[in-house]
Design a protein around this nucleic acid. Structure first.
Lengths: 204, 204
DNA sequence: AAAAGTCATTGACTTATGGTCATAAATATG
DNA sequence: CATATTTATGACCATAAGTCAATGACTTTT
């Protein structure tokens, strides 16, 4: 890799780091693009080389922690479906916590914004989460863990709704509860009952 | 009531109506305050007599449909807890649908916005929904419908998360599914299993 | 019924900031 | 070393949110 690309990469990273810190501390709306560039030690215009809109930086900020989850799940190939889901919930909320409430708030807003770039793997948006989870459930059906009449689409919807809802509620409650505590109790009450009647017990 | 207050009320209603139509059609970010006032036939400054910020009109827009749910639930005093929840889910999503995707998007954004007025009954925000639902569950415990060891707070969280998550997902999916179809199936799969082990069967 | 007072309304103005772009600096290429 | 390419700059522009002194319609007081 040549020097140019390297400095470019470095600049982008500086912006993301500065942005993360500022948003975490003050909230997305309370800072402007120049605040970010100043903190990163570059000129305002530089921001727009790396991000099309002010909002776009949030996706990149969140990509770092959230991006790892999918990889981890792939490595759990052998585990039971309930274990996978537990892991997914747990890690998702761990990322939520590490990003902090202000980043999550803005991230949710971005995800809802129709002007955003179309759903992509990179965007870490609705569709991608949905497809990944659906894949996990479908796989469980194929492997015979779940009954073949399990309504995979519906279950995916329910679980994703729960996940996003948990994050939204955490943001709304202004961080009133510990995300991770709740997650474990959520899983306990939710996963088993919801999947319950679709889990194969014996050689049925 | 004197003529002055009457025209004032009328003006506000004109703004809300104009705002609803415009946001429904074009989305909140795509219109500006002057678009609303022009459509309502008043001057721009008038908007700020009735709303402190551009965003504030969305709360008033959504207050109309959503406000009715609480009243309806009070009238269901005698019904079973599962019936009440089913009604709540159903009506909530009915309101979501009638408000339209653009209003819901912005409403969710507003609810997440830390600059918003503190949670109030009028605000129709997190806390209010939470307390209402919690009340319903607590009542069910008192009446002996639910076991006394039912984790009311946690169950409330789960259900609210699900509700808000469902709306968020609908917005994210760009209205891909019929909210009401899904709601019924959600209820079917969710309410019974989640509450299941806390519902008293007999004279236990 | 005239004067004084109240309050909704107005729209020109201020201000803030997201985003653009011509220019310059740094680096690569031959 | 000359030319080409990429990255960085910051003055500038456009837009729109939000303010406010002035207005006049309506109400109350004397």
């Amino acid at each position: 890799m040549n020097k140019r690309k390297l400095t470019a990469q470095k600049t982008k990273r500086k912006l993301i780091t500065a942005g993360l810190e500022l948003i975490k501390e003050k909230g997305f709306d309370a800072i402007n693009v120049e605040d970010i560039t100043k903190k990163a030690g570059v000129a305002k215009g530089t921001f727009y080389i790396y991000f099309k809109r002010k909002e776009d930086i949030v996706l990149d900020i969140s990509r770092v922690p959230f991006g790892e989850i999918a990889d981890e799940l792939e490595k759990m190939e052998g585990s039971a479906i309930t274990e996978k889901l537990r892991h997914y919930f747990h890690r998702f909320m761990e990322c939520v916590e590490s990003c902090g409430i202000n980043v999550c708030r803005q991230w949710t807003k971005d995800v809802l914004d129709p002007n955003n770039v179309p759903d992509t793997k990179d965007g870490r948006k609705w569709k991608y989460d949905f497809e990944m989870l659906k894949g996990i459930l479908e796989n469980a059906v194929l492997k015979g863990e779940l009954k073949s009449n399990a309504p995979v689409e519906l279950l995916t919807h329910i679980i994703i709704s729960e996940l996003y809802g948990m994050m939204t509620c955490w943001c709304m409650s202004d961080g009133e509860f510990e995300p991770l505590d709740w997650t474990d109790r959520f899983c306990e009450i939710q996963i088993q009952p919801i999947l319950g009647k679709f889990i194969k017990n014996d050689g049925e």
